[in-house]
Design a protein around this nucleic acid. Structure first.
Lengths: 365, 365
DNA sequence: GGGCTCAGTGAATCGCAGT
DNA sequence: AACTGCGATTCACTGAGCC
């Protein structure tokens, strides 16, 4: 991209100051694995708005003021999202978080720029602030949007790890997590909360564990007091933070210095079979675990015979273990490893057991 | 409002056919108390989807949900929202419902037109369809947006009624309600579902009870099989439905003829009775109550290490707290919550103590 | 009738490595 | 870049049928 050598080096595990759009534009394109962004929505722009002709606002519909501040907010959103998009690797992803004040602008602009929404996720607060005046529903949630760089783009999703985190049931799009309070809530010198919207680490834990791998680079353009960086460090991910307020940067630096990374073994996470090395069925025959001519059976009584090249012959079909299984069942597809069984001591045993033996040997060897 | 007599007569408790924008424009301005709209979501489904058992998912592939581009969808949204806005009384309100495919377009356009968002509300589904391929989070919710006609406009909110409905606690912005299934789900002559996206009456019950008064006029421009009308009639509100598809209108007419005012029998069946889900061990890790890498011990001296995804690693075993406990004891099952202890001040403490802390938080929240 | 099993289903943007 | 073929993947609930 016409970038000088050296400029391509990412400032890992650092907090950059200044404007996030300028800072992002100075970093190399296609270099970031994940962006987590908690943009401000209360821009306090209203007082700065001036109508070009100084005319009076029509009192019938108070929407003018709102409309212009929306336009400014949209321009702000467009700029930082475009800068973020440029930084993302083709297989990277982005998370944004917002409330009903701004999340519809965020989601619409993500789609406008070609991001592909994967899920919207609801952070349900177990301890929200009540609605004191009793005029609305208790505002008990915020919304996160998770998006890949475009339709068809790959992305990281640690399905099994999240399923394990949720007691063996696949993780839903609504997450119950308490507000950041107590010892986790950072205080300034006066003992007041250091940042008005500090996010709980539990939220970032789930985001980073689920959608990044150890060693990935995570960028947060609205770093605040550094929750994204703290959790990234604990989980063995690299981070880059951008924050324009000096006081937040100072608190974040202090906080991050104290964070310890978890043991490497603790960061190893439950993986799916998809990540395991592939084993060809023919290898079982080659190694003598199954004999050519041996009969395999399905749970429902179908049979097929093993051939020397690792294909099967059923009644009127031949092909791979998967093809023959699918043909017999009249199904669009079939996992032959779990469908077919061989007989040992009069009992049917899934051939997947033999694959697992080979995989165990591969790990040791 | 300079309206001719006669033109002002609303077609109450009727289903109008044809295009909803034309129909709305033919009704008198400032005449409707509440609009509930469930517009097409513009799902962009590519191929077929099969369950792991190879059965095919019955997708929403109806022509009425197809739009050629986001731009065309936005124009559609702009048109019907403008027509809806014209109809609303100054103190009226609107509800729209959508999923991540379209709700950001809806919310942004509501704001563009000057509507004032009062809350976004999450319909949490107690029984959503799982994510069969394990590629994303289970899409377990939809989003409703509740908005008044503009900043400062009055609106109806029956705070105490909703509080009573919620066992004396302020109603939150996240509602757990099951899908519309069983006898409530309308069937066509062939016995198939009459409408692909019929909403549960419990959802409309909460909306109409909370944000209208008896005698109010409720308009639904995407009436479908008439859930809005049915609940309005039960609750003593007037309704106007607009529906393009003749088959849906016919079914709705039949359904509405059977509905009795204040007949709540169906609602009581469909209100969710499921308790809060169990606490996952992984949540203790996420929340920092236990640290990845930390060692747990059993009363008989066995040890295991906590991983970041809420699984344990023992000597030669990994899995859930229950699985690892059972493997170590050689038992068929094991209650990990009482089996495992963490060390505090040199003393072993059962991890169940931490679970009880989280349950207490959830009860309070 | 009660209790059990089994089959069915719900707004879904649902591969990927190797060649 | 397009093509080929392996082979991974589900939760809560309802209702019918059977004993």
């Amino acid at each position: 991209m016409g970038m000088m050598k050296g400029a391509a080096a990412l400032p890992l595990n650092a907090i950059l100051d200044g404007d996030c759009v300028e800072r992002m534009n100075a970093l190399p394109a296609n270099s970031i694995d994940l962006i987590f962004a908690d943009p401000p929505y209360n821009l306090q722009l209203r007082g700065d708005l001036h109508r070009p002709d100084n005319s009076k606002v029509d009192a019938v519909d108070d929407a003018w003021d709102q409309f212009d501040s929306l336009k400014i907010y949209d321009a702000f959103t467009r700029d930082w999202l475009a800068a973020a998009r440029r930084l993302l690797k083709p297989n990277g992803a982005i998370w944004v978080i917002g409330s009903y004040h701004n999340v519809f602008r965020l989601g619409a602009e993500l789609q406008n720029q070609g991001f592909w929404i994967l899920n919207d996720v609801v952070w349900r607060k177990s301890n929200p602030m009540p609605n004191f005046r009793g005029k609305r529903f208790t505002n008990a949630h915020e919304t996160l949007i998770w998006a890949s760089k475009g339709e068809g783009a790959k992305y990281t999703f640690n399905y099994e790890a999240l399923k394990a985190l949720n007691e063996g049931i696949q993780m839903r799009s609504d997450w119950m997590i308490p507000l950041c309070t107590g010892h986790e809530r950072l205080k300034d010198e006066a003992g007041d909360k250091a940042h008005p919207t500090q996010k709980p680490m539990a939220l970032l834990h789930r985001v980073l564990l689920g959608t990044t791998n150890p060693g990935d680079v995570v960028l947060d353009p609205f770093f605040g007091t550094g929750t994204t960086g703290a959790v990234a460090k604990m989980l063995g991910r690299e981070f880059i933070g951008i924050e324009r307020e000096e006081s937040y940067r100072r608190i974040a630096e202090k906080r991050l210095a104290k964070v310890r990374k978890f043991d490497r073994s603790a960061l190893e996470v439950t993986t799916s079979r998809r990540a395991e090395p592939r084993v060809a069925f023919g290898v079982l025959v080659e190694r003598g675990m199954l004999r050519p001519g041996e009969q395999l059976v399905s749970a429902r009584g179908a049979t097929a015979k093993v051939r020397a090249d690792g294909t099967l012959v059923g009644h009127d079909v031949k092909g791979s273990i998967h093809q023959v299984g699918a043909a017999i069942e009249g199904a669009p597809s079939c996992n032959g490893w779990t469908y077919w069984h061989f007989m040992r001591d009069g009992q049917p045993v899934p051939i997947d057991v033999l694959r697992q033996q080979i995989r165990a040997e591969m790990r040791e060897g």
